[in-house]
Nucleic acid binder design. Structure first.
Lengths: 154, 154
DNA sequence: CTTGCCCCTCTAGTTACTGTAGACTGCAGG
DNA sequence: CCTGCAGTCTACAGTAACTAGAGGGGCAAG
């Protein structure tokens, strides 16, 4: 395939133009050739590279992990174990988040259910959020799971 | 209850001092009284307010939603429907993320399984990342979910 | 008085982008 | 040839939701 501008690459990969430039700026993508007037010109393999990055990101790998994966990709074979480790780490992370979200789902459902039956003078959702002490019923286990939430608390 | 400094409030709610000031700066918390020397002095109800905020945030409500909830809390009762809507929206969001994460989990498991049996020549994880097409799309939301990950635990 | 923790403001950094400003390029129509 | 417009360039600012640090002042005890 002939060289393409950043717009074409964007179209081919569904990655936004600005994001492509961003990836270049943080070193995920090599600097491409430039036209005489300074426009970026990409070869066909850029599409694969970019898809790789995008797919890894969609899988939840942080950029730092993507960087690792790329570097391992360059010298393949022997390092498969490392790649496996990175993937496993990511899987653990995904599972951790799954557990948290399931707890959140349960708590939200409970809140909403309470609100539905709400002849209660004050909304149960707000009550549940206020919680601590004088709540309608004994309190859930959700909060404990939430205690370890990654949302930058703790 | 006597007035307390920001440190006490932080201790009582497990919300960091800097975060409390941050919440004040974005209008989630009212500006408290100040001592003669300029230190913030909080009344007892600040504890409840702050716990409410923190709990809502832990449940994944964005700050904008928390703001809404607070405003509804001020004039309670009649607005229960609105509160319910916000909670439902949040529940939908949580479910969406759950679905996405489940797909991620499946794909990661598949990748790792392939890698285990894998010969050295071609790591299947990298191969799996290279091929696109069959998987998740919706890149923006993916990134959103992933943003705010611990990255310390890893 | 000094130690040491607490508090103050302000700024900048984090992650992974997205959006904007202001200027230039490349190409088609009239 | 001119005009118009989409596409591209750089550079900076903004987003979410905080966190961390600099550089200073306050306050009670030893």
């Amino acid at each position: 395939m002939a060289l393409m501008t950043i717009g074409k690459l964007s179209g081919a990969t569904a990655v936004k133009v600005t994001t492509i430039r961003y990836y270049e700026s943080i070193g995920l993508l090599d600097e491409p050739q430039r036209s005489a007037s300074g426009q970026r010109l990409y070869a066909g393999d850029s599409v694969e590279r970019l898809r790789f990055i995008r797919h890894a990101r969609d899988l939840g790998f942080p950029v730092s992990a993507v960087r690792e994966l790329i570097s391992l990709q360059v010298e393949p074979g022997r390092e498969c174990v490392l790649v496996d480790q990175i993937a496993r780490r990511q899987l653990d992370e995904v599972r951790r988040r799954l557990t948290q979200l399931e707890a959140l789902e349960a708590e939200l459902k409970r809140m909403i259910r309470a609100c539905e039956g709400g002849k209660i003078g004050s909304c149960s959702v707000l009550a549940a959020l206020g919680q601590h002490e004088n709540c309608l019923h004994e309190q859930h286990d959700g909060a404990e799971v939430l205690a370890g939430l990654p949302s930058k608390g703790a």
